[in-house]
């Protein structure tokens, strides 16, 4: 790990009246993966959304390349791919149309062929022409995940990416994540499933429970 690209300093997030965490600091360099653990309601999703810039933090800083992300939204968004609980797909559009919109808005163009290849990689043949609404939950998730292969982003933020996937697809996604990290990418993910995420530089972050009385020190990043 040469240099920390993503740096979180003294982060505090509040949801409603509840303080989720406070004084959270860690950094993440190229080619590493951060696995965020914690029980329900401990603020995993909020942390991920705060890093993506969707949630405004109460205090603290989130820096990318040494500058706060709120000051460089466009540059940061170019490097970011966030996949949340929702699929982020329009059910009336086909898989190809869905993926093409986001590719275009990110400034790149993709051909039907590339989309097909990406969907094939996730085990979805012949779904390019079908509207997303006719696909099953797992298949929809796969279409959403195909963006990982189609958009060149450095930082992936994946909130429960393994939900609704079958064993084979979980393996596939793990391979994709490993390849991304090996190529110098960065991944932040949460999962409740027992998935063995083993890559080069792995960090764990535990939110909540550690010291139940005091959330301020509850966040401990340990290095493996």
């Amino acid at each position: 790990m040469d240099k920390a690209l993503l740096e979180i300093r003294e982060l505090e997030c509040v949801r409603g009246d509840k303080q989720l965490f406070k004084g959270l600091s860690f950094s993440l360099g190229a080619g590493s993966l951060l696995h965020v653990h914690g029980p329900n309601g401990s603020g995993k999703t909020t942390l991920l959304r705060a890093i993506a810039g969707l949630v405004l933090q109460e205090s603290g800083e989130i820096c990318w390349n040494g500058e706060q992300i709120s000051r460089q939204k466009d540059e940061f968004n170019r490097e970011l791919l966030y996949l949340g609980h929702h699929y982020g797909l329009k059910f009336e559009l086909t898989g190809y149309e869905n993926l093409k919109v986001f590719a275009n808005l990110s400034g790149s163009d993709i051909s039907e062929h590339e989309v097909e290849a990406a969907l094939m990689r996730f085990g979805l043949a012949h779904c390019v022409e079908l509207p997303v609404k006719v696909l099953s939950q797992g298949q929809k998730r796969r279409v959403a995940l195909a963006r990982l292969l189609l958009q060149p982003s450095k930082l992936w933020i994946l909130d429960e990416p393994f939900v609704a996937l079958d064993a084979a697809a979980v393996e596939l996604l793990l391979d994709v994540i490993k390849a991304h990290v090996a190529a110098g990418g960065m991944v932040i993910l949460t999962t409740h499933q027992e998935v063995a995420v083993e890559v080069g530089s792995l960090q764990h972050l535990h939110l909540g429970q550690a010291q139940p009385a005091q959330t301020s020190q509850a966040a401990v990043a340990e290095q493996h």
């Binding site: 810039g53 966030y82 797909l89 329009k90 990110s106």
Partner: peptide, 18 residues
């Protein structure tokens, strides 16, 4: 409702243009 709005917030384009 389907989460595409938050994805639109994250594309590298000015949100006012979107």
């Amino acid at each position: 409702n389907d989460g595409t709005l938050e994805q639109l917030l994250l594309v590298p384009q000015p949100l006012s243009l979107i």
